[in-house]
Structure formats: C-alpha cells, structure tokens
Nucleic acid binder design. Structure first.
Lengths: 114, 114
DNA sequence: CGGCATCCCGTGTGATACTG
DNA sequence: CAGTATCACACGGGATGCCG
C-alpha cells in the first residue's frame, strides 16, 4: 500500500506492522518495555494494568519470535527473567510517538467515544 | 503513555488511536481513501479487496462519527455517495507512512509469519 | 447504487487454578 | 517468581439476503 496497491493485503507493510503490534495489549507492553529499558516479568505485569498472565506471556513470546523483544533468563532461585526491546523494537518508538501525537489531538476533538 | 503512565489505559493517546484505526479493515479503507482523494462506495469496496458491505459501511459510519471521514450524498437516481478523508484523517497519513516504513523493514527480517 | 438485517462462527481474551 | 493449563464466552467479522 505504500504507493501502489498490493495483490494481497498481507503484502502491505502497514497491515504487516499491525499483525505484529495491532492486538489489544501489544502497544501497552511495548511502551512499558521502552520506558523501563529492562524490566522483570511481574513488574511488567504490574505496569501493564489489567493484563493476565496468559496474554502477557504469550505476547512476549510472540514478540520475541518476531524479534521485537529480548528475553534474558537468569538461572537463580528464585527465578529471574528480564525483558527489553530489541533495536527493531525501539525503531518502532518514533512511529508510535507520531501516532500518539495524532491520537492526542483526536482525543481533544472527539468527545463521545468507546 | 506518551511520557508518564496513565491510570486507565484508555487515556493513552496511543491506545486511543488504536480504538479509532486498529481494527482489521480500518487502515486499508483509510489508505484507499487517501489514494483516491474521493471515491464512491462501490469503487471503494472494490479496492478494499475482500471486505463485506457490513464491515465497510459500519467502518465508514464510525469513522465519520469520529471525524476521520466525510460522506457526501447526492440526491440522484441512481444514488451516489462519495467518501473522502477529513483533515484529521489526512493528518494520520504521515504516521502511517512512518509505521509502514518500519513494517517494511520488519518484513525483510522476519521470514516466518502469519 | 448504497446500504441494512440476520444468522453464524472462529478466536482472542478473561477468569481461575495449578506448577517448577 | 515466572509462567502454563483449562474452560468459557463475547465480539469482531464472514456469508447471505433484502430494501429504498
């Protein structure tokens, strides 16, 4: 979609980007990771308020698979696992800020919503 | 989320933006509107390949309500209705391009997906 | 032509509980 | 502490058909 039409919409980089970060909890997670640089699992869960273990761990696992997130496990007792963004993940931040700017202006304009 | 944490995630401009454009067909629709400047309903449906009437009309209606889209109805026979982006809608485009850039790079890196 | 009404289904998500 | 297992359900979205 960037200039021309794509045969299948899966080819559109934009649609593709949304498959990576479009689901409900992805952005809150990414944002928390970015703010903390590096963060442990339970602290992350606390900051992304309302998320369940299932969704959080699955999301992290997928994003790790997609190269957005790094997982570092320390072989200790009690267990410690830290998460942070990869370069690719951080490369996303400027776009998100841009989008957030737009969202901010829209929040002002639109009063009745969700 | 732009700098500090929000009490409720609905307050985050980013999360808010996703409520406006995050669902499956929103971006393809916006993109088609942007490419065509102004476009009739059925032509839009043709360009956003695979979308159903239900989803398209509902999406348009909501986006109109949110101030992203303008609907212009001509009182003729046969009926003619044209859609285009508002200024607010077009203001979104740069962010989308930025996000598309990122998505493009990710497409290269990630081979196994969806 | 430009929709809306209906029915239906997949899956993402929530809640709860359990484990190494 | 850092998850996994299981169940259940709401809801977005597909398919089909009808209407002004």
């Amino acid at each position: 979609m960037s200039e021309e039409g794509y045969k299948r919409k899966e080819d559109c980089p934009l649609t593709f980007a949304l498959t990576l970060i479009g689901s409900k909890w992805r952005l809150p997670i990414i944002w928390a990771l970015w703010k903390n640089k590096t963060i442990r699992y339970n602290e992350l869960k606390r900051q992304v308020d309302g998320i369940t273990n299932m969704v959080l761990s699955q999301s992290l696992k997928e994003m790790e698979k997609h190269g957005l997130v790094v997982r570092t496990q320390f072989m200790e007792m009690p267990p410690r696992v830290e998460y942070s963004l990869t370069e690719a993940g951080e490369a996303l931040i400027p776009s998100l800020k841009s989008l957030a700017e737009w969202g901010k202006e829209m929040q002002v304009k639109v009063t009745d919503l969700v």
